[in-house]
Amino acid sequence: MYGPPSPTIPARGWPDGLESRSRTRRARRRAHELVISGVPRPEIPTGVADSWRRSMALGINPDQHSPRHLLDAADVLELRREHRLQQVMPALHDLLADDSSSGRHLLVLTDARGEILWRVGSPDVLRRADRLEFSEGADWSEAGIGTNAISEALVAGPTGAAVLRRAPGAHPP
Rank of each mutant, 00 (worst) to 15 (best):
Q87V: 10
G169T: 10
T147L: 12
D124C: 01
F134Q: 00
S22Y: 09
E115A: 04
P158W: 02
P45G: 02
R21C: 03
R23K: 13
A112S: 14
L154D: 01
R119G: 03
I36D: 07
P168K: 08
V155K: 10
L96S: 04
V76D: 06
A149C: 14
L96A: 08
M56I: 09
E142N: 07
S66W: 07
D99Q: 11
D124Y: 09
A153V: 02
P62F: 06
P173Q: 08
L164W: 08
G121I: 08
G114R: 07
G169H: 11
R127M: 10
A11Y: 05
E152A: 13
I36T: 09
Q64D: 14
R29G: 02
L117H: 04
E142T: 05
G137Q: 01
G38S: 07
R25Q: 03
W118H: 10
R104E: 05
Q64W: 01
V120Y: 10
G59M: 12
A112M: 10
Q64L: 14
N61V: 00
I145Q: 02
R26Y: 02
S37A: 15
S141H: 05
S66E: 14
M89W: 15
R80G: 04
V48A: 12
P5V: 12
V88A: 13
L106F: 10
T110W: 05
P7Y: 05
P173E: 14
L154Y: 03
P42E: 11
A74F: 01
G157C: 05
T46V: 04
P15M: 12
L58N: 08
A156R: 15
E152I: 11
L132N: 07
V120G: 00
D50H: 01
R28D: 06
H105I: 07
D63P: 00
L164G: 08
P168N: 08
S66R: 12
D98V: 02
A31S: 15
V155P: 00
D98F: 09
S6N: 05
S141N: 02
F134G: 01
P4S: 11
F134S: 01
P123S: 08
V163Q: 12
I116S: 01
A11R: 13
M89I: 09
L77R: 15
E152Q: 11
I60M: 10
S37T: 08
E152K: 07
V88T: 14
E115P: 00
R127W: 04
H69N: 09
N61F: 03
A27S: 11
P172A: 13
L126T: 06
V88Q: 13
L18D: 14
D50C: 00
P15L: 08
A74W: 04
R53M: 11
E43D: 14
A97M: 08
S101C: 01
A73E: 15
T46A: 12
S37F: 00
D124L: 13
A156M: 13
A31C: 12
